[in-house]
């Protein structure tokens, strides 16, 4: 695996974009940078894994899992709600370009391509949601283990 400058460039671009989104959603102070760094991680993982030849849906799933873990840890540390970090971090994965290309093939009358791209859009959205599901569920599981009555050795 080779880390190239391009990966940092795409990470940096999403970082800048995430700062913009953070301002739109009124995230303030250090939280803004912490949340935007999540977007950097997300884009970086996406770039590295795409370079390695993984399928895009799988890449989205892994990146979304990683970012959710990051957000949960930050939320615990900074005592803020998880969405504050999660929403901004996950935006690079949202399939904006697929929506666009699906719609373009629709107006070009290429129904087969339109169908393919639409399904792809939903697949990616599903992969993102699944990543969030998995981590949140794992955390619930850990919490419920902590609540179990523990036998004390005397």
């Amino acid at each position: 695996m080779e880390i190239t400058g391009d990966m940092f460039i795409s990470g940096g671009l999403t970082f800048a974009a995430a700062i913009g989104f953070g301002i739109c959603f009124n995230i303030r102070g250090a939280n803004l940078f912490a949340a935007s760094f999540g977007a950097f991680i997300c884009a970086f993982i996406e770039a590295v894994m795409t370079e390695e030849g993984f399928s895009e849906v799988f890449v989205c799933f892994i990146a979304s899992t990683a970012v959710t873990v990051y957000s949960e840890i930050l939320a615990k540390r900074l005592r803020c709600p998880v969405p504050m970090f999660l929403i901004v971090s996950i935006i690079p994965l949202v399939p904006g370009s697929y929506i666009y290309y699906a719609m373009m093939s629709c107006i070009n009358g290429d129904l087969a391509d339109f169908g393919k791209r639409s399904v792809y859009t939903f697949e990616i959205a599903g992969a993102i949601a699944l990543g969030i599901f998995l981590v949140t569920f794992a955390i619930k599981l850990m919490k419920s283990f902590k609540k179990l009555p523990v036998k004390k050795n005397r």
């Binding site: 913009g20 959603f25 929403i87 901004v88 996950i90 949202v94 959205a125 993102i128 949601a129």
Partner: peptide, 26 residues
């Protein structure tokens, strides 16, 4: 113009609703 539109389109995509919806489901 496709790049232009995709870039500007990202400011409209429903990131908040998608994330919150997924969290409500879980």
């Amino acid at each position: 113009y496709d790049k232009t539109i995709i870039g500007a389109l990202m400011t409209l995509v429903p990131g908040v609703t998608l994330t919150n919806g997924a969290r409500d489901f879980i």
